[in-house]
Design a protein around this nucleic acid. Sequence first.
DNA 1: CGCAGCCTTGACAAATGTCAACAAACGTGG
DNA 2: CCACGTTTGTTGACATTTGTCAAGGCTGCG
Lengths: 232, 232
Amino acid sequence: MPDSAFGEIRDLPLFAAMTDANFAALVRGAYVQTFPAQIELIAEGDPSDFLHIVLSGSVDLFASWNGRETSLATVRPISTFILAATVRDAPYLMSARTLEKSRIALIPSQDVRAVFDIDANFARAVVTELAQCYRSVVKAQKDLKLRTSLERLANYLLRQQRRAGGAVSFELEHEKRRLASVLGMTPENLSRAFKGLQPYGLAVDGARVTITDQAELLRFARPSPLIDDAAT
Amino acid sequence: MPDSAFGEIRDLPLFAAMTDANFAALVRGAYVQTFPAQIELIAEGDPSDFLHIVLSGSVDLFASWNGRETSLATVRPISTFILAATVRDAPYLMSARTLEKSRIALIPSQDVRAVFDIDANFARAVVTELAQCYRSVVKAQKDLKLRTSLERLANYLLRQQRRAGGAVSFELEHEKRRLASVLGMTPENLSRAFKGLQPYGLAVDGARVTITDQAELLRFARPSPLIDDAAT
DNA sequence: CGCAGCCTTGACAAATGTCAACAAACGTGG
DNA sequence: CCACGTTTGTTGACATTTGTCAAGGCTGCG
């Protein structure tokens, strides 16, 4: 296994503080693979054999029940996913599929747990990462329970705008049908929600969104750092 | 500070594996306090000064936005809450209030972080606990996004039945208005949902619930271990 | 060119929330 | 122990939100 492939993850906060020896132990049984788009990497309920790390491309985390399906999150480089299942040695709660051609590093879960048991720095990094993940889901939960779909969309767009560097106009990075699922609504409803935001300073043309009246959209969306800020 | 007060938390999975010295350091600045019902212990947005541990009674975790409010979880003895905020030294994402007279242990967050940095066993225990919390919220998210309110109620009742030892008849342990909030609906809607489940083998009288046709309710609810099992 | 998938739109249905009224349960102070 | 007021739960009527179904346009690709 060429070291070069793992150089890019060595500096991740999750691995940065651990010794070279332990990092080596971690990647000894690991490998990197490139997957085409729309490949199901893991299925919910499967045992957690590997910790996954997205090196390039993007991955959709979703879940199903009773014939319905919903997207819970999108993983973008460079981040891990299903860390919680790995450390608890429990089945995955979510399925994962590539959204585009993606390079994924896979580290055997047993190696993660083994190194985790002997490397305190790594254990601490895992805590920080998990706490972060946890807080993200709590924010998503608040978003879902406290806001209408129109409000969720408005706040989502303001968050995306910030990601895009604050530009007035930017491209959606999700397919709309998936964005609808992430926001907890149907594609039809999302179409109407976009129209419903026009009176509040929004213009949409295909995947291009333009915020024509920032102040008005902000007044409608009322973003909160305790729901919409990524960092906190 | 009498040791007796902390004996009950010494055996928690979170603290069991740490040395006596480190446990002592953890509780040196800690204290136990008894609060009456309906006291707001923390407010979302506050800095995370203390790790809280419910010794007796119960605590409601809730969040507000734009004049709306929703309950996210109930903490029962003996468990900690807001561990994630503590380890990240970030503001609380949820508010907390006592539901009844409750004894709460408070451990200064800085002590938690300090011990966490020097005690690998403690760090590992924190990971396990956080991963557990994370998975709980993910399940709640799936429950909310994949099920209708009637289905959520049905599955909630089946979970409660299991907690009650599998008895056909049991008492609700939440006030109904709060149960409605936990399940993501209005109190009026919950009333109707209870009636809506009658054809599927449910009878309700005040806080007493009787499952008159277990098989039928199961067929309607279709519980899934990946949403409804506490352990996994 | 033609097919397939995505997006949009309209009409309609179902689910959920809102408001108002009232009954029942509870706690408090007389 | 009772009377009172407050809170909670229930119900009905209605509004709003959201989902469903069907159709058609658009785009990208073989």
